[in-house]
Amino acid sequence: MGEITVAPVADKAGRKQFTDLAYRLNADDPNWVPPLRSEAAELVDPAKNPFFQHADVQLFLARRDGRVVGRISAHIDRLALEMPVEQGFGPGCGQWGLLEAEDEAVCHALIAAAEQWLRDQGMTRVLAPISLSIWEEPGLLTLGHDHPPMVMMGHDKPQYQPWIEALGYEAAKMLRTFDLDVRVEYPKLIQRIIASGEKNDKIRIRKVDKSRFDEEAALILDILNDAWSGNWGFVPITDAEVAHTGKKLKPLVFEDLIRVAEYEGEPVAFMMTLPDLNRPIKEIGGKLFPFGWIKLLRWLRHPYPADMRVPLMGVRKHLQSSRLASQLAFMMIEYIRREAVVKYGSKRGEIGWILDDNQGMNAIAEAIDATVNREYTIYGKALVG
């Protein structure tokens, strides 16, 4: 085998090679869902991804005998540096992500290059993989390789885990997704909690209003930043990131699948549910042209049948750990479940990711008989020398 060289990506052509590699290395994995080419390119484009507005990013490509055999990103999120150390990030903490490698030697060479770049920027420790933001695809898939991911979730080769751990990386946090059969009614106790909430005149569970998209997005962002502010790994979402994500997700926004809970007229919680876009994307192989866009547009007009994922939910901090918080969560889940089954022909639902030590959300998932179907591990390591 030839010598491995790792070099920084410095131009558009390099970014294209960086993007293209994932499609080649994962082509033989039946459970890998190829992202849309345009979105994969946009992710690593400083002119199009607002993450670059508050982060320093360096992409690397590995070559053997002139052939591209691996890739990695090294990055420092300046907003993450401002967070408390006890919440995961904090001063001196860099990240790497977007790892793809043909073999273990390539993997190790890439990680070494990323670590050295972080050291050169003054970082003393690393959390990885995070690709690129904590709000995008954090963690390495370490459970659930036997089925494809739902929309906005990552999928990694199983061999990456031992390769990474061999370099001294240790688990810092586990992220879980929960799977459930949405056709099955919830246990009687949960039904009574929901029925009680429906009799409470102070509670209102409403659909979002897509005609006021920007206003509703701002409201959800406000609740989210408040609700998640004490969580491990939290980094505030910027207005530019909300606008960017909102533009991408708007075609997936269906008013009956995203709910806002109001208590005494105040919006205090939300739940976002998205139809699983990965299903049609997998069918078109991530290619919009020449005819993929027709199939995708047809599906987006009426996604049926469509399984569902709950990527985000939150309850304002002053209500967390209260009975009301759980009641609102159960009510939103149930209202969305009914719509998903009747209007979208849903069979499965997925909730997460959820931190492994988030007792409240784990308890809610278990109460509705959801089971863990995927786990993602975020690793940590001190950068010494």
Rank of each mutant, 00 (worst) to 15 (best):
L189K: 15
V151L: 14
L257R: 08
W135R: 14
A128F: 00
L79G: 08
R71T: 04
L36G: 13
R125T: 00
G349F: 12
D65Q: 13
D45Q: 09
Q159L: 13
L59Q: 01
I72D: 03
Y169G: 09
R337A: 08
D156I: 02
V151R: 05
D20M: 09
F89A: 08
N231V: 00
I364S: 09
M153K: 11
A128S: 15
R78V: 00
N225K: 04
D45H: 05
K317R: 15
S322I: 02
G292Q: 11
S321F: 14
L355K: 01
M332F: 07
C93K: 02
I354T: 03
A218L: 12
Q116T: 06
G139K: 03
L81V: 02
K248C: 06
G122Y: 03
L300D: 05
W353G: 01
G139V: 02
V341F: 10
D120A: 13
E104H: 07
R24P: 03
L25M: 10
N278H: 14
R279S: 14
D65R: 11
P8F: 01
V44T: 10
D65K: 11
H302P: 05
G345C: 05
V268D: 10
R374N: 05
K247P: 03
I336Y: 07
E266H: 07
Q320G: 06
Q121I: 00
E136T: 13
V106S: 06
E42D: 15
V44N: 09
A340P: 09
I130E: 07
A13F: 12
E264C: 10
S326G: 14
L219A: 11
P280D: 06
A41S: 15
R309N: 04
T177M: 09
V235T: 00
Q95V: 03
Y23K: 11
R204S: 10
L277E: 05
E39K: 13
L221V: 04
A101T: 05
L224Y: 15
D65F: 08
V260S: 08
P251S: 03
S211R: 13
G285L: 06
V44G: 06
I190S: 06
R71L: 04
A227D: 07
G14T: 00
T377E: 14
G139L: 04
E375I: 08
Y263R: 09
I364N: 11
D45K: 07
D214N: 15
L21E: 05
I368P: 11
A382P: 02
Q17M: 15
K199V: 00
R15N: 02
A22N: 08
E102C: 11
K295H: 10
R63G: 03
S133W: 02
